[in-house]
């Protein structure tokens, strides 16, 4: 039953970028499953590879400077082995994409309606009339009050929230089975963010789509996602249902991140936040073997880490990378770092 609902299955996906003649992994050996009717959140800080993973899946990389390996089965076909023209049949039709910055993601010189109907041009046989009606219907579906007026406008005439709704309308125009939303609310105010997330959830329910929600915002994940994958340094370090990961976080990184969030009941003058030691290494300086998070928890003895960390199942569906979670404890709050 589980297999039937799987929309996208990533097996051992790695993506390496060429920097000064050498390839470095931005995403390493990721295994993930996205199911129908489900929101999978991929969460992590900048540079963890979450966006790269998304663009890898839909083949938006310049293959001259990128090396991709592994498998990404989507409806029985491996996306990573598809030709450009095969991918063009999938993108926009079966996989819809939503990007972070809604202003730059829309062509400044085209009217909203034209940008929506463009996706219909390539994937449907609708007449001009039908496309027009479909565009208006989509605008209404994403919560735009005056679809007719908005359809005739240019991107710069809309507010940030409106633009993001338009982007969503484009992404869902062909009722895709899978929607990949890369930081869809980062540039928006919280109230608008809440509305956009509602729209996404409604659409998912209506279309029975699967959604990959990529974000750095733990709050957004906790409020929206069904499943969570936490990424650090190109790897998935913990995954499971939202309840499992947020209710019972196991990996030192997940625990540290949650702990570094501002808490309301702290003293405004004296209480400090938890700080993770060190910083995320740049892609060229990333350790290639062993536990990549180990340098940031140096008080945990090396023997606690696996040589080649693998995922360990804690309970059904809840997995954690490396065995060090068993021995992890927080060192007392310390502010110093250089």
């Amino acid at each position: 039953m589980d297999e039937e609902n799987t929309l996208l299955e990533l097996n051992n996906v790695s993506t390496a970028f060429k920097i000064e003649g050498q390839y470095y992994n931005a995403v390493s050996h990721v295994d993930l499953k996205v199911k129908k009717d489900e929101i999978l959140a991929i969460v992590g800080e900048s540079g963890c590879g979450k966006s790269t993973l998304a663009t890898t899946v839909v083949g938006l990389h310049d293959m001259k400077t990128t090396k991709i390996s592994g498998e990404a089965f989507f409806e029985g076909q491996d996306l990573l082995k598809m030709s450009d023209s095969q991918l063009n049949d999938v993108r926009g039709a079966k996989i819809g994409m939503i990007f972070q910055d809604p202003l730059s993601a829309l062509n400044p010189l085209k009217k909203i309606e034209d940008q929506i109907s463009e996706v219909l041009d390539y994937h449907t046989k609708m007449s001009t009339e039908e496309k027009h009606n479909r565009a208006l219907q989509l605008l209404e579906q994403v919560g735009i009050d005056e679809p007719k007026r908005t359809a005739r406008q240019f991107p710069h005439e809309l507010s940030g929230g409106m633009r993001q709704r338009v982007i969503i309308a484009i992404a869902i125009a062909c009722k895709p089975d899978l929607i990949i939303a890369d930081e869809p609310t980062t540039a928006l105010d919280v109230t608008i963010q809440a509305q956009i997330l509602d729209v996404l959830r409604d659409i998912q329910k209506e279309n029975h789509a699967g959604i990959i929600l990529i974000t750095h915002d733990l709050g957004v994940v906790a409020e929206t996602a069904d499943e969570v994958a936490v990424m650090y340094a190109g790897e998935v370090v913990e995954c499971g249902t939202t309840e499992q990961v947020f209710g019972d976080p196991r990996h030192p990184y997940t625990r540290s991140l949650l702990r570094s969030m501002p808490q309301g009941d702290m003293d405004v003058l004296n209480d400090d936040l938890y700080v993770i030691q060190g910083s995320v290494p740049s892609i060229e300086k990333m350790p290639q073997a062993g536990d990549k998070f180990a340098p940031r928890i140096p008080w945990i003895p090396a023997s606690a880490h696996e040589k080649e960390p693998t995922m360990h199942e804690i309970s059904a569906g809840h997995e954690v990378r490396c065995t060090c979670y068993k021995d992890f404890y927080f060192k007392s709050l310390e502010v110093k770092d250089v």
């Binding site: 800080e45 900048s46 993770i276 502010v335």
Partner: peptide, 16 residues
């Protein structure tokens, strides 16, 4: 990022 934000906020408090 969250972990960096914590550092900066702590520094602001420390200076205060």
């Amino acid at each position: 990022d969250l972990s960096v934000q914590a550092q900066v906020l702590n520094f602001m408090k420390k200076i205060q």
